[in-house]
Design a binder for these strands. Structure first.
Length: 951
DNA sequence: CACTCTGCT
DNA sequence: TAGGTAGCAGAGTGA
């Protein structure tokens, strides 16, 4: 027989890969670095050798490695770290998915299996490559059996190769003598004792004189020098035993035939699913297009071309009276009009973007006198009937106008019990034509589509199944909840992602290309098909995890009011920004000049690398602290150097001013639309804790701490003749902590409405309330914050600029003052460790896989997460409830005021002057009673003619 | 594309 | 042992 076989020592290579590849986790929190490294090593070897056969051997159950014992810093033995252990079944599953022949047999170790197969294959005339990290295997090397030992170094994998001669060259002995070598010198990592006192040098010397251990003992008298002779004499039993231990069997009884080891098609449907699950993006390209298309072939999509077909489809749909209908859509970002310079952005389950030329979506023909514009490119609808899923796609503008499509969608929402979508908020935008938007602005009391009263809104909420939000609740750690993710996670189905089908191309481009039509149809079909089918499983899962109420009563309404908020936007004065930009530019140029003069040369101040060299090498300033790539020049480091050199304050000011200019003064105007308002996006499925995040632009990080930056808030105004009311929770997280922990001292302090930091200081430092010094109060405040974040003495020390010891003492004293908090926080960690997740008051979960890490840093992080998430998350839940209630109350009371921004513990409301008092009352009431806690929720409401004044 | 830095709560 | 405050978005540099 001709050809080649590659044999792999599974555990050994997995182990190598684990320590050679930096920690990787997929979004489920599974550790994947060893699997990844293993596949890379294996694929590299297969690419190189192009063998006909492949087999991987594993020990059956082997939590510890025989040869490469994991050791901690003291060198003591430990079991396999958890992160590695969990990857053993993963790699096996992956290899099975690839169709690779695995061999495991009770009672045999992997190297015995490999030895047996290697010899057998050699006998049959094959070239053998035996891949292992274990040098014991060298005993098997021959001219036809090559032992390959991979080394994972940074920059790739290098492999050492050994045929007979290579072993001789390197060790001075023949491969079979490796056994004798181990017999004499032993192997500490392997529990092979060897002969006491004999190391590698001596052993090799002996083996050069006598070919085997047995020979050496047969001629023991001839062994020199005396010392060696004596050692051997004493260690005879050990030597014989050790040699036996070191011998790899080559005669195992295996159910193994070469035929089964033929290399399969590694890149098939199953392994594709697995690679996607583990998120090995670089491996995806190994799977060819065909494979990917095959995976989705069974999805039957009707491509509707005429109005008649469309009507027919819906007739059948309504006739079947399905309880659930999936809806998918392809669209630009709804706010593209007037914002054409922005870059392409992804949003929700689809690609959303804005144009960079004059093209502005699809214009429809006139309806009445008005032009209605919808940024739809096409939609799809799915429903099941008679055990079959029917999916239809239609492109806007082909047979139906967008207006007709939207009308149909509205009817669908009214008629059908459950509408399943990915990204309902975006769908709402696309169903609200721009024309209605502008009318909204003028009328400003009229609620837009689709529900004009709170009752109607509530009915609507019960119908919406937003799979994106649901999937987020089930695992908030993932970074996308796109259609392929949902299909994989809840339907065990592999479908093509947008990126796989279209790469980075935007929908507008695809729309122009005739050749992309099929792929677009397929993708569009998935967008309704997948939510429709996944709804059942996802709902069940949410109910099982007690999150259905959270989903229904908090998240869905939140999505709706976020939609309204985005739709409305907030006024921004572009002229003020332009003026600020010019004035900042002047400041920057002055600072540049000063800095160059002080440094004695010109350089890029924005480059931390160049700056570090200037400060710490050229100017020899002290306290140089290095990061991975150079010196740290962060603000807290520079702050400590403030008095060392006049250049430092200049640099800090430069940083501040350039940030203000680039991010805000120059960054914001791009987002001002034709209506004079910024319609930022509020994302509901980003944060791990349940907070909302803000992008395009980020309206949640507008400066406030520094006066110069704070001026930017004057840019944000209510519309003409209206005012802003800004409502702010006071210390919501600490109050949540008081409630959740039930600590009587803290609760008491809040009930008495005391200055909480002062109160804490007085108790912690045992001084009377009035005698608390500023420093004490500051320290207490920092500890209070630290507690909320999951304190560490190290971090607190940094924060307070005191030693770790002192910080530790503060914490200790704090916990003495509030013992219930200590108990509570410990309980949180314990609970998260047991359950695997942390939970908020309203049932929101956050998985904490880090808690089971063997890495101290990871584990500590997990502990902080376990302490912080319930607190931050509960506060996030509360403000969502507040936002919902405020929005509903405003509508119910017939008021025109609208929420325009949410900044974690703050709501900014645009209000007609005459409504001010009513609105203020509503904000105070609804926010304060969004949740009933053991302590009052205090709300501060302020009024102003811009955001600067109101906050 | 990773890293550093800075803005907010 | 060395090293970390929690949660985000965006700009800029440099490989």
């Amino acid at each position: 027989m001709d050809g080649k076989i590659v044999l792999i020592d599974g555990h050994s290579i997995l182990n190598r890969a684990f320590y050679g590849v930096p920690d990787l986790t997929n979004s489920e929190g599974l550790h994947t670095n060893a699997v990844y490294g293993f596949l890379n090593i294996m694929l590299k070897i297969l690419d190189e050798e192009k063998p006909e056969y492949l087999t991987v051997a594993f020990d059956v159950k082997h939590p510890t490695f025989r040869h490469e014992m994991y050791a901690d810093y003291k060198g003591t033995r430990k079991g396999m770290p958890e992160e590695l252990k969990e990857q053993v079944p993963l790699i096996q599953e992956m290899l099975r998915a690839m169709g690779v022949r695995l061999v495991m047999k009770e009672g045999y170790e992997a190297d015995d299996i490999l030895g047996t197969i290697a010899r057998q294959a050699e006998k049959e005339g094959l070239e053998v490559s035996l891949v292992s990290g274990d040098r014991d295997l060298l005993q098997l090397a021959t001219d036809r059996i090559m032992i390959r030992i991979p080394k994972t170094k940074r920059g790739g994998t290098e492999i050492e190769n050994y045929h007979t001669q290579d072993v001789i060259d390197k060790y001075g002995i023949t491969p079979p003598q490796i056994i004798d070598l181990k017999g004499l010198m032993g192997d500490a990592s392997d529990n092979i004792p060897g002969v006491a006192g004999v190391g590698e040098k001596t052993a090799v010397k002996v083996l050069t004189a006598f070919p085997t251990v047995e020979e050496a003992y047969a001629h023991l008298d001839e062994v020199t020098p005396k010392r060696t002779h004596d050692l051997l004499e004493k260690g005879r039993e050990q030597a014989i035993l050790s040699k036996a231990l070191a011998t790899i069997k080559t005669d195992c009884e295996l159910d193994y035939s070469l035929e089964e080891a033929h290399i399969p098609e590694l890149f098939n449907e199953k392994s594709f699913a697995m690679v996607k699950r583990l998120e090995f993006k670089s491996l995806l390209k190994r799977f060819d297009k065909k494979q990917q298309e095959q995976a989705t072939k069974h999805l039957q999509i009707q491509n509707l071309k005429t109005k008649e077909q469309w009507q027919e489809f819906f007739r059948h749909l309504y006739q079947s009276n399905p309880s659930i209908v999936g809806v998918g859509f392809l669209a630009d970002h709804w706010a593209s009009e007037g914002a054409r310079k922005k870059k392409a952005k992804k949003s929700g389950g689809q690609l959303a973007f804005v144009f960079d030329d004059g093209d502005a979506g699809i214009m429809e023909e006139h309806t009445g006198d008005q032009e209605k514009e919808y940024p739809f490119y096409g939609i799809s609808v799915s429903y099941s009937a008679e055990d079959e899923v029917h999916t239809a796609c239609i492109m806007a503008g082909e047979a139906l106008t967008s207006a007709e499509i939207v009308a149909e969608l509205r009817k669908l929402v009214e008629t059908i019990d459950h509408i399943a979508v990915l990204g309902w908020k975006d769908m709402l935008h696309h169903m609200t034509p721009i024309e209605e938007l502008s009318r909204e602005h003028e009328a400003a009391g009229q609620d837009g589509f689709p529900a004009a009263t709170v009752e109607e809104q509530k009915t609507l909420f019960t119908k919406i199944a937003d799979l994106e939000i649901a999937a987020y609740l089930l695992n908030p750690l993932k970074d996308t909840y796109q259609v392929d993710d949902i299909a994989r996670d809840y339907l065990d189905m592999t479908i093509s992602s947008y990126a796989e089908l279209f790469g980075k191309k935007r929908i507008a481009e695809l729309y122009e290309e005739e050749t992309q039509k099929d792929a677009m149809m397929q993708y569009l079909g998935q967008l309704s098909f997948v939510p429709c089918l996944a709804y059942g499983a996802v709902r069940e899962e949410l109910e099982e995890q007690d999150m259905w109420q959270l989903y229904e009563e908090i998240e869905i309404p939140t999505a709706y009011y976020l939609y309204q908020m985005e739709r409305l936007g907030v006024c921004a004065d572009g002229r003020v920004l332009t003026d600020m930009s010019a004035s900042l530019q002047g400041t920057i140029e002055g600072l540049e000049k000063d800095i160059y003069a002080l440094a004695g040369e010109e350089f890029n101040i924005n480059s931390p690398k160049q700056l570090g060299v200037i400060l710490f090498e050229k100017m020899k300033l002290p306290f140089a602290k290095k990061t991975k790539t150079g010196y740290s020049t962060s603000a807290d480091i520079l702050d400590k150097l403030r008095s060392e050199d006049p250049i430092i304050p200049k640099i800090l000011e430069y940083r501040q001013v350039t940030k203000l200019k680039s991010t805000y003064a120059d960054g914001l105007p791009v987002y001002i639309e034709e209506d004079g308002r910024i319609h930022g996006k509020f994302n509901q499925t980003i944060t791990a804790t349940g907070r909302i995040s803000s992008t395009d632009p980020n309206l949640q990080n507008i400066p406030i701490r520094m006066e110069l930056g704070r001026q930017l808030r004057k840019v944000f105004t209510p519309r003409r003749n209206w005012v802003f009311l800004d409502a702010d929770y006071s210390q919501i997280e600490l109050r949540v902590l008081a409630h959740l922990s039930g600590d009587p001292e803290l609760i008491e302090a809040y009930r008495e409405n005391k200055d909480i930091h002062r109160s804490t200081a007085s108790k912690v430092f045992h001084v009377s309330f009035d005698e608390v010094t500023d420093l004490q109060r500051r320290n207490a405040k920092a500890v209070n914050f630290g507690i909320v974040y999951g304190i560490s003495s190290f971090g607190l020390g940094q924060d307070l600029n005191v030693s770790r010891k002192e910080a530790e003492k503060f914490i200790e004293q704090y916990f003495e003052t509030y013992p219930a908090i200590k108990t509570y926080l410990d309980g949180l960690v314990e609970d998260a460790r047991n359950k695997g997740y942390a939970k908020t008051m309203f049932g929101r979960r956050r998985p904490v896989p880090e808690l089971s890490s063997s890495n101290f840093m990871q584990r500590s992080f997990g502990e902080r997460v376990a302490m912080n998430s319930p607190i931050q998350g509960t506060a996030a839940d509360i403000i969502k409830i507040a936002m919902i209630r405020v929005s509903q109350k405003l509508l119910e009371e017939g008021l025109q005021a609208k929420v325009v921004l949410q900044v974690h513990d703050e709501l900014l409301v645009e209000t007609p002057v005459e409504e001010t008092e009513k609105v203020r009352e509503i904000l105070e009431q609804e926010m304060a009673h969004a949740a009933e806690l053991a302590v009052p929720l205090e709300v501060e409401v302020e009024e102003g003619s811009n955001w600067y004044e109101a906050h």
